[in-house]
Design a protein around this nucleic acid. Structure first.
Lengths: 185, 185
DNA sequence: TGTTTCAGTTGCAAAAGACAACCAGTTGCG
DNA sequence: CGCAACTGGTTGTCTTTTGCAACTGAAACA
């Protein structure tokens, strides 16, 4: 009965494992960053990242397979191959930038020299943010998790309490237990 | 002279490698997600994630070492240890959510059952977004990279062109080449 | 007191990554 | 044309990381 935990795990299933299947692998994000920076060719990635050839080959193939990059022969020079971001790849920009900003905030000082700016006013962008459906900026304190059926329902009742440890303010309530209770009952 | 590319690589140095040092390792993000969901104990992570004991031990130690989680003995039961998010850990929420939303958008359909909502109106949050300094939502098409010295300067001059391949709309201009030119000249 | 739980550690097999060498199509050049 | 150089790989070997199972030591429990 080692699979007992399986349904429990499924309850908090979300897009994260799927995202990590590709982007969780080493070098994937670095390759993506290079792509955003306009790197398109194998040897270019190679020298830019300092990655092993076979790993780069493998990673590029996987990114192409997952439709994050597209692979096309270069018209000018048929030896060359072009790797370019697909729309799906471009959609990873918020993830990459928020990671990057986090690293910047807490890492040792790095003076990010080419700065990412808003093209219009040429001023640095703000932090990548969690927004409510109507555009308010939310912090982790403003969030909680509810069951799909209870969307939009304002509840004034008490929140299910953890049996051992109290919930930190801003941490998602452990709905897992609540749901488990529902299923059992 | 194999180190010739080193200074080139440094030019686009940013927080990403630093972020990936911890969060790029396998399981780190899954452990983080569990933490956000209120998981605090070793055995809990173990059954929730289906990870090997030694790897979990190693990963938790590394997250603690990097001040993403804090490790404290449980007051109620001195066998137990509590792992809790630090402010630095909470700051990874945008990165985790944007990854998650991306996985959700492009992955096979998963009905994210505990839905993350705004606590106030209990409606699902919007997409994690890139904002300008004054709060406008930006897409990848609105961004570009400039040198630190040129911040705020509106330039009407032409943009440095790639020698081989044209830049896709929305892709960051390859300032690497431009900068290299400047340094050389 | 013996048993169970918790948070690990240790040893071993398997998978993934790094490094270097080799290879097949271009391409540029004399 | 003939040949060296370039590009984008592949293959083989070694090292590191991961996964699995068994074991440990301290605390709780019965």
């Amino acid at each position: 009965m080692k699979d007992l935990r399986e349904p429990l795990r499924e309850l908090i299933e979300c897009g994260l494992p799927q995202a990590l299947e590709v982007m969780g692998e080493r070098w994937s994000f670095m390759i993506l960053r290079a792509s955003f920076n306009g790197v398109h060719h194998f040897e270019e990635f190679l020298s830019e990242l300092g990655i092993a050839r076979n790993i780069l080959s493998n990673r590029l193939a996987k990114l192409v397979e997952h439709d994050i990059l597209k692979r096309e022969p270069c018209p000018d020079d048929r030896r060359k191959v072009e790797y370019r971001l697909t729309p799906k790849g471009f959609d990873l920009l918020p993830a990459m930038l928020s990671l990057r900003q986090w690293g910047q905030k807490y890492g040792v000082e790095v003076e990010e020299n080419p700065v990412i700016v808003d093209e219009i006013d040429r001023l640095p962008i703000g932090p990548v943010s969690i927004l409510s459906h109507d555009g308010r900026t939310l912090t982790h304190e403003d969030l909680c998790m509810v069951n799909r059926e209870d969307l939009g329902k304002r509840v004034d009742g008490t929140v299910a309490e953890d049996n051992c440890c109290k919930r930190e303010p801003g941490e998602f309530p452990r709905l897992i237990d609540g749901v488990e209770l529902k299923r059992a009952g």
